[in-house]
Simulated assay, not measured.
Amino acid sequence: MLRLVHETATLRLARPFRISGYVFETAEVLVVTLDDGTHRGRGEGAGAYYLGDDLANMQRQIEEARGTIEAGITRDALRTAMPAGGARNAVDAALWELEAAQAGVPVWRLAGLGSEPQPIVTTFTIGADTPDAMAASARDYAEAKSIKVKLTGELPLDLARVAAIRAARPDIWLGVDGNQGFARADLAALIDGLAQHGVSLLEQPLARGAEAELDGFRSAIPIAGDESLLTLADVAPAKGRFDVVNIKLDKCGGLTEGLLMAAEARRLGLGVMIGTMMATSLGTAPGFVLGQIADLVDLDGPALLAEDRQPGVVYRGGMLYAGPEVWGSGQHTPA
């Protein structure tokens, strides 16, 4: 038998974070602990705000599944026992860490990685603001090698934002995230303007549900699907519409599903990106494992917080590293 405990935490952001249609100042997460009387596993889930997957929903889902989980459940069985989302992500992460502790091997080895995880380049995200303020933020990320910019669907203003950031940081890889804020009629002008400023990725320009509008569209910049691509079932239909699959563990329900999505994307010739909702280092560490096999990594959640949990991930020289002390070491972890 397992014992399941869950609690909540409110994360304060270092500053308000604006995207298309939403401003974040805090984020609530669900923290799950599983123990078998000897070992324990931990996981954190934030859910997806645009799906209504809030704290109350996550708590309800986990209580509905409590009996099944505590009776003993595999990570594969969890994929059908709970719906995809933040609660399942938290439980899945706890099962990975628990299994690693029971086996005495680190999570990365259980996940089938061929070698110990290494630091990886991650994007640092700039929320929507005035062009001057966003350019200042880009300069503040002095060590960043990769920056992602939140746009709002205001086409002339958005292009001015990108131009200001590119002028401030001509050296970086630059991507933009539309967060569903644009219309199909905007795309040609948007992509032409972005290409002029050396933008390398356009993420989720159209609303979830409007994916068919990308059929036959040819873009000079790779387009990534985020809100449109939640779980493994969404990867195959992405072919011909998106070039890159943005996997977020809070959308798909955990690292177990995320690894399956990455494998399917590779099979279809699509790029693999790993992203995050607002998260502490505990919520970021499973994504770091998947990030070892991704083309693009966007795991800056802890960098946006006023305070992270400790021990935490390390950001240095534009790179991210989640050491074994953060999560999933495979060492004995007392229950």
Rank of each mutant, 00 (worst) to 15 (best):
L229A: 04
A135Y: 00
Y49C: 09
A335Q: 03
G104K: 00
A138R: 00
A142G: 01
T80Y: 13
L268P: 00
A65D: 07
L290M: 04
Y321P: 10
A263T: 10
I223Q: 09
E154W: 08
L98A: 10
G330T: 01
T152Q: 11
A133C: 09
P117D: 03
M277E: 14
D295K: 02
L78M: 05
A94Y: 08
A135W: 00
R218L: 13
V5P: 03
L4S: 05
L113F: 01
R12I: 06
S219M: 13
A279V: 05
L187M: 07
I223K: 08
E28P: 08
L202C: 14
E64R: 15
G175V: 06
H39T: 04
W173Q: 13
L201M: 14
F242E: 05
Y22P: 06
A188N: 10
V313M: 03
G312K: 11
L55S: 01
T130V: 04
S146H: 15
T256L: 06
A185D: 11
G323L: 08
K150V: 04
P131D: 02
A48C: 13
A236D: 11
F17S: 04
E97P: 11
D36H: 05
R169H: 00
P286E: 01
I126V: 07
A133W: 08
R66A: 05
Y321H: 15
G240Y: 03
V31N: 09
Q102S: 11
R139K: 12
G41H: 10
G47S: 00
G127A: 02
N246S: 13
V149R: 05
T276I: 12
A188D: 15
A263Q: 14
L194W: 04
T122C: 02
A9N: 05
L157K: 13
Y49W: 15
G254P: 12
